[in-house]
Structures are given as C-alpha cells and as structure tokens.
Simulated scan of single mutants.
Amino acid sequence: MVSERKKKPFRWHVLVFLAPAVIVYTMIMILPLAETLRFSFFQRDTTTQVVSFVGFENYIKLFFDPYWVEPFLNSLWNNCYFFMIHMLVQNPIGILIAALLSMVHLPGKKLYRTAIFMPTLLSFVVVGFVWKLMLSPLWGVSKGLMKSVGLGSWYLPFLGKEETALTTLSLISVWQFIGIPMMLIYAALLSIPDEVIEAAECDGVTGISQFFKIKLVLILPTIGIISILTFVGNFNAFDLIYTTQGPLAGPNFSTDLLGTILYRTFYGQQLQPGDPNMGAAIATVMFFIILTGVAIYLFFIQRKLTRYEM
C-alpha cells in the first residue's frame, strides 16, 4: 500500500522576505508606468481645462500630424545615431583596453584601469559643463591644444555646428562611460581558466589569434550584455544633452534625442506650453522601443550565444 504523500507546507517566510522588494518596486516602477500609459489616452482642453478620454488620438498625432512627426522622427534618428557611435566606438575600444589590461606583464595596469574608469563616477552635469568650457571657441583650451600639436586648422566650434554637435556629444559620452565595458570585459577575461589558455598555447594558438579564436568566443555572452545595456542607456539619454545644449538641443535641434523632446513636450519650453498627455504618449513609445530592443536580444540573440562553463 502506497502511503499518501504529505503536502509540503506553504513557505510563508518567502512572501515575508519578498514583500518589501515587491512593494517598493511596484510603487516606484509599476504604478508610474501604468499611470503614464493611462495618462497617454487622455487630453486636456486648453480653454476649459477639461480632461477627456481620447483613446489613441495622441499616438495618431505623434505619428501622422506634421507638427509632431517631424521632430519625433528627428529625435529618433539622432538617438539611433547616438547608439551606433557607442556600439562602434565605445564597446570595441573597451574590449581592446580590457584585453591590454589582462596582459600579465603590463606595468602600471592598476593605474590605467583606475584612470580610465574614473570619468564614469562623474555626474553628467560636471562632464557636460567641463567639456562645454573646453570646447568653447571664446575661452576654451581645445583650440590652443590643437594648435600646439599642429592641428589648429582642424579646429571647429564642435558644439555649435549642426554637422558636428551630435557626434561630439556622442564621443564625450563614450569618453565618460568607456570604463563600464572595459571593466566587464576585463572581469570576463580574468575568469577564463588558466587550463584553457595553456591548452591553446600547447596547440600553438598564441598572441592575437588566441584572443580572437579562444578568448573572444568565451566572452561573447558578456559582450551581448554590454550591448543591451548600451542600448537601454542610450535610448534613455537626456542629462548630457540638456547640460551642454539646453532643452532645445541646439543648434537647430541637431542634438535632439527622445529624452529631450519628451522633456520639452511634458513641461513646455519658452513659448511652447507643456502637454503632459502628449509627453506621456512619447514616454510610452520610448518604453516600447526599449522593450522591443531588449526582447529581440533576449529571444533571438541571447539564445544563439553559446555559453561555455569556465
């Protein structure tokens, strides 16, 4: 006769330990997100101040009204460009620096590691104002420094020209945050077992070929995580643009990102009154853009990355 299995008691202590984190996360993340989504389906009449339900009208205006669609698409393109600069400059250079720092006999690598990571600890406001002062054509030091190395003819008001402003700000952001991919890749490289490296050396795989054939393959999951973190961070960018170029993201909106157009729409700027409902619609679109990018990575890219036990 088979004895009946005793039901396992419900572990109430699990709920007790999880409850504080769930409550805090719900209050600061879930509820504001739900309220933003709800807010985007309403509109306030500018004359009577009456709030009425309009459904998807705010989204239709955002994507089809010429008054909204042109600045929105401009900021979306600028955001994509901002992200691509980071992907093509920041992450490859971060991998290169991490590979150099992982060399056993490199002198002073602790100093280099600390110096490169230091800008990451600075606030956006400090970085923005410092670089704005340095690149100023009136009192900045960049013009004199470029002249001293024979590049004076290449000097431009980098933040004052539409053609160069966004690229300049992208490179400033790269300079500030290159320490993050460097440290993550550096940690991944150090976690590779010595036995794997020794086996590769016994097979005659050394130097650069060892990095590309052995180490790079083993750290691909870490590179994937860095890429998605870069995507999320860049599509939430706001502080650096606001600090250096102001809420109008000049010159002539050439540095306008989704974050700055959201700020101007929600709070208003100069003669433009604030429209919180349209701002909520833009914030919701931003959320779904980021969610789509993360979902593509998790369900289509991450699954194809082979993870090796190290």
Results as ranks from 00 to 15, higher is better:
V232K: 10
L229F: 14
V232M: 10
G246K: 08
D203T: 05
I226K: 03
F211D: 11
A200G: 09
P193H: 05
E198N: 04
V196T: 05
S209Q: 09
E198K: 00
I223V: 15
F212Q: 04
I214L: 13
V196E: 00
I241W: 06
E198I: 02
K215W: 01
I219F: 02
F212T: 15
V232Y: 06
N234D: 08
I208D: 01
A199Q: 13
G224P: 11
L248A: 11
I219V: 13
G207E: 06
T230M: 00
G246L: 01
Q245T: 13
K215P: 01
V232Q: 05
T230I: 06
L248R: 08
F235L: 07
K215D: 01
F212N: 10
Q210Y: 05
L218F: 10
L218W: 12
F231Y: 13
C202A: 15
E195Y: 01
F235V: 00
S209I: 07
P247H: 02
I208H: 03
I219G: 00
G224N: 03
K213H: 11
F231L: 14
V217W: 13
D194Y: 00
E198H: 01
F212Y: 14
I208C: 10
P193N: 09
L229M: 15
Y242W: 07
Q245G: 03
D194L: 09
F238K: 09
N234H: 14
I241C: 03
T244Y: 09
T244L: 09
L218M: 11
P247G: 11
I219D: 03
C202H: 10
E195T: 15
G246W: 02
F212H: 15
D203M: 06
F211C: 07
F235D: 01
T243F: 12
G204C: 03
T230Y: 04
T206W: 07
I197C: 14
I241A: 03
I214Q: 11
V217S: 09
G233A: 15
F235N: 04
D194A: 10
D203P: 07
T206L: 00
L216Y: 10
P247R: 05
G207M: 03
S227K: 12
P193K: 02
N236E: 06
P193Q: 07
T230Q: 01
G207D: 06
I241V: 07
E201F: 02
T243C: 14
C202Q: 06
I223D: 15
E195G: 07
N236C: 02
P247I: 14
F235K: 01
I214P: 03
T222W: 11
F235T: 00
S209D: 12
T243P: 10
T222H: 06
L248Q: 09
Q245E: 05
I214K: 05
T243G: 08
F211A: 12
L218T: 05
I214V: 15
A237V: 03
I214E: 14
I197L: 15
G233I: 08
T243A: 15
A200P: 14
C202K: 09
C202D: 12
I228D: 04
G207I: 01
N234C: 14
L229I: 12
A200D: 06
V232G: 02
L240A: 03
I214N: 09
